[in-house]
Design a binder for these strands. Structure first.
Lengths: 332, 332
DNA sequence: TTGAAAGCGCTACCAC
DNA sequence: GTGGTAGCGCTTTCAA
């Protein structure tokens, strides 16, 4: 059987309520007894019983996260990063891989204090009975009244184009998923078009290359279309980490040089960008910052909700340009 | 506030101990009252409080699973399937994406009843303090005293070669990761060689094609090597789902016909095989069976451990050949 | 500064 | 068949 505070109390010769206070570092206990109790509890190998604690305190200190159904390396990096950051707090994180509704129910039985949801999980669901909810990504339903964290895709495209234009590029292509109904993809592509216009460049419709998907191979094939053009662009914005991987590969196979033949900026600001076949300059909210904001927000939400003040907000996070060596001035 | 059994008791006009029994389907309650109570509890949206239940019963009915670090579609299919199957039992499953040691500690705080571990998680760790542990995959350390579930890779290769040989193939290639130190890859590749010999075929070393990785693109590139040969094989065994995807793509690009130009069998018996560019005949333990065995074993382990009888066993599961239309007799 | 006691939601036992 | 009640391990008043 596990050691309980009563066992400790017996050994220490105090009441078990004193033990409880001591272990929770309450200022109501004399430093001396506190130290003694802590020492004894360690010697006895005491581990607090989570169930008992959460039963009485009515909070579990657990954050639940519903695993995004669309598997992308960027999302799993985000999830891992969120987990790491939560581990640094007094909270823990658990995951569910079930559909949203099922996950929500599981989490309710666990009485998790807060739930992180990815808007890619776009199933219909009823969140009315749940604990504090926070979502990441572009929401499809405006009537959902929980806070949202979302990268500013439009601004990202603006910064990418701005940087390329500054280097002297005027012929910039976008290789990304134009056919998707995923609002995130739509925002990127619209953002790109808007940015081109804002920088006074000519928007060549041929330079909007549809990958028809987000996989590595989609980027690879789409890049093939680009080589068939007579009037090739000098710079490319890749729509995602995976797509850009395919672009690089297509370049390498044709013995093309980055950045001399083509300057490339990739969407998605993840550290893995540095380990690609060719390290790419990238644009996007750094995944660490995203995770930090998500963790900070969910905890704030959880703790504020206890005082019944749920304020619905939406945070469009600012992207950053991460310079590597995949961009140069265009050849004359 | 959440609905409790007391609330239900009030509405139903019975005592709350009767509610408890009814909800646990105890034979001590009259069918009539049982039905009434269940109906009311559903209407009120009752969800049992895990913490309270586990506090008294001293078990959580939770299985923890440590997310495999190597991301493969096959593994995530397995995890999802395991989750689905656990949901059908009285247990629930939670995931941790942290390193093994951290996950183990989190799970201990949760007092999970059992833990599923993937042997890909090959970190060093101390499992001595943990609850019932079960691992999937080839263990690297023989001194670990917990049960293991593992597909019989050797038998799988035997069956694949047998089938191809039966169709009349004598020139069979293996495209897989030969350079890996992952014991699972080593077993596949050795199994293939052994199977070739057992079927009295000549083992052409050139037909062992190293993908140098498990990604889609590794299969794609490795297939290129095959086309450079003068004496090409007539049949191919693909080392994994992703690798085989690359093989198919390489075939398609060269306008080669499956199965007329090449017969292909892929390792990994997952349903997604049917949705590939070309549906492939596949070999491996069906992922559903694997999940079922894992779930059955961990639950058995959890429940037997309560009577202190931990028997360490290792289950090498039998693969199955899943016929689709990617194999035919070789051309003469 | 410490101790006693109530009670979180539930299961399980014993009475009726 | 049903109800009453003890108690799981802990936190949190309130009293001493």
């Amino acid at each position: 059987m596990n050691v309980t505070i009563k066992d400790i109390a017996n050994v220490a010769g105090v009441s078990y309520s004193t033990v409880s206070k001591a272990l929770n570092n309450s200022p109501l206990v004399k430093e001396n007894t506190k130290r003694k109790i802590i020492k004894i509890s360690q010697e006895m190998g005491y581990k607090p019983n989570f169930a008992a604690r959460s039963l009485v305190s009515n909070q579990t200190k657990i954050i639940g996260l519903i695993w995004p159904t669309i598997e992308r390396i960027v999302l799993s990096t985000l999830v891992t990063e969120i987990s790491n950051q939560i581990n640094k707090t007094s909270y823990s994180m658990i995951l569910s891989v079930d559909p949203v509704q099922t996950s929500l129910e599981t989490f309710r039985r666990f009485q998790v204090d807060g739930i992180i949801l990815f808007e890619e999980n776009n199933d219909e669901f009823d969140a009315s009975q749940s604990s504090a909810l926070l979502s990441y990504g572009v929401t499809r339903k405006d009537d959902r009244n929980y806070p949202k964290i979302d990268p500013n895709h439009e601004q990202a495209m603006h910064m990418a184009v701005e940087y390329l234009a500054m280097l002297g590029h005027t012929q910039i292509a976008y290789i990304g998923d134009l056919s998707s109904i995923d609002p995130m993809q739509i925002q990127k592509y619209k953002g790109f078009k808007k940015a081109i216009k804002q920088h006074g460049l000519f928007l060549n419709e041929d330079y909007l290359i549809d990958t028809e998907g987000l996989d590595w191979y989609n980027g690879y094939t789409a890049t093939g279309k680009l080589f068939k053009m007579t009037n090739r662009p000098t710079a490319i914005v890749g729509g995602s980490y995976d797509i850009s991987g395919g672009i690089i590969r297509a370049m390498k196979e044709r013995k093309l040089h980055i950045p001399n033949d083509f300057s490339i900026i990739s969407y998605d600001n993840v550290p893995q960008m540095a380990n690609m076949e060719f390290p790419l300059t990238s644009i996007g909210v750094p995944v660490g910052e995203l995770a930090a904001e998500i963790v900070k927000s969910i905890i704030k939400l959880v703790e504020s909700e206890e005082m019944n003040s749920i304020d619905v907000y939406s945070n469009k996070m600012m992207p950053k340009l991460n310079l590597r060596s995949s961009c140069a001035r265009p050849r004359l």
